[in-house]
């Protein structure tokens, strides 16, 4: 028995394509507690969405979980029957996606789609369902909800649709909300509004959130802890404070330098090179071909996890190197 709400252990998810096995998520472990907000950060293709879909068990072919476990409330989700999973999806764990414009069914009204979620997971009937839909739409800040509920997705703006998605995800009061880059497809001003809404709802409802993003700046003030992903692995994890003020992995440092900021006028430094080709992962550290501090050992051996505090860990040879240098073993 563990007292974590969600516990992911050694999760491995691969896509089997003609060119070979793409290890999109490779030996990922983490936990999430009640009311906690976890940020998952990484560049495009680092395996953030695949991690989320693996938790919900909604991978589509040719994707497949090849190892590890996902425990929610001490129930194993990997290998659970579809019938049981359906009772968890949308009721206990909900997800919202990157592009709200394509994530709602174009031929049903917004109200109909929220009603559907309510009917699936509660005993409410008829008028009560409709009332609940209107109530949740009001809560996420949709004006004139009676009229809006009767409209189709194409009659909404992107920001409004994301509010609808949030409403639909939260209407059954799940324990966990997974937000997969909820603001990436939206305008900057709208992004801030959506983040504000999520923050507010989290305070009110107290659910746990897994907040996926490729922009560390967005998750900063909302997350209790953050984990950084690269090429399907978690390369560093820590509290938001640790990650921001004391990053230990060269990749995390690179990500921090590439945050666009309105306050400091310092130049943005994007990380050099292209994201990794998952079919050709280097023998050593996957980040080594792009790392400015790359050493010989980085090319040959995967760095062991180094623990810095109860909360912070990183897998980067630089830390080992610094330690050795400090003790006078290396020049």
């Amino acid at each position: 028995m563990s007292n974590h709400l969600l516990e992911v252990n050694n999760l491995k998810t691969s896509f089997f394509i003609p060119a070979g096995e793409v290890k999109a998520v490779d030996d990922v472990s983490f936990t999430l507690d009640k009311g906690e907000v976890l940020g998952i950060v990484g560049e495009s293709g680092s395996g953030k969405s695949v991690t989320a879909y693996s938790i919900m068990q909604i991978l589509s072919k040719p994707g497949e979980i090849v190892g590890g476990s996902v425990k929610f409330d001490n129930q194993e989700l990997v290998g659970m029957s579809e019938a049981q999973l359906r009772k968890i999806r949308g009721a206990k764990i909900s997800i919202i996606f990157q592009d709200p414009m394509t994530s709602l069914n174009p031929v049903y009204t917004v109200g109909n789609q929220i009603d559907e979620a309510i009917k699936l997971h509660t005993n409410l009937k008829g008028d009560q369902v409709h009332k609940k839909t209107i109530e949740i739409l009001t809560q996420v800040g949709v004006n004139d909800p009676e009229k809006r509920a009767k409209q189709y997705p194409f009659e909404f703006s992107g920001g409004m649709l994301q509010r609808v998605m949030i409403a639909m995800a939260l209407v059954c009061e799940p324990d966990i909300l997974i937000a997969d880059e909820p603001t990436t497809a939206l305008d900057v001003t709208i992004q801030a509004q959506i983040m504000e809404l999520m923050r507010e709802l989290q305070k009110k409802l107290g659910m746990s959130i897994i907040l996926i993003t490729h922009d560390l700046g967005v998750v900063a003030d909302m997350c209790d802890k953050i984990q950084v992903m690269y090429a399907g692995k978690i390369v560093e994890r820590g509290t938001a404070k640790e990650i921001f003020y004391n990053p230990k992995h060269e990749y995390t440092k690179g990500l921090l330098k590439s945050i666009p900021s309105t306050q400091n006028k310092k130049k943005l430094i994007p990380i050099q090179g292209n994201p990794i080709d998952l079919l050709n992962i280097p023998k050593g550290c996957a980040f080594s071909p792009r790392c400015e501090q790359c050493m010989k050992i980085c090319l040959e051996q995967y760095p062991a996890v180094k623990v810095f505090s109860e909360t912070q860990q990183a897998s980067c040879w630089m830390n080992v190197f610094k330690e050795l240098k400090g003790s006078g073993t290396v020049e």
Binding site: M56, L85, R89, G90, F97, T102, S103, L120, M165
Partner: peptide, 16 residues
């Protein structure tokens, strides 16, 4: 079947 809204439906707990 490859559209995003089908994934949304699945994630909502809708039957196949």
């Amino acid at each position: 079947m490859g559209q995003d809204y089908i994934r949304t439906a699945k994630a909502k707990g809708v039957n196949y």
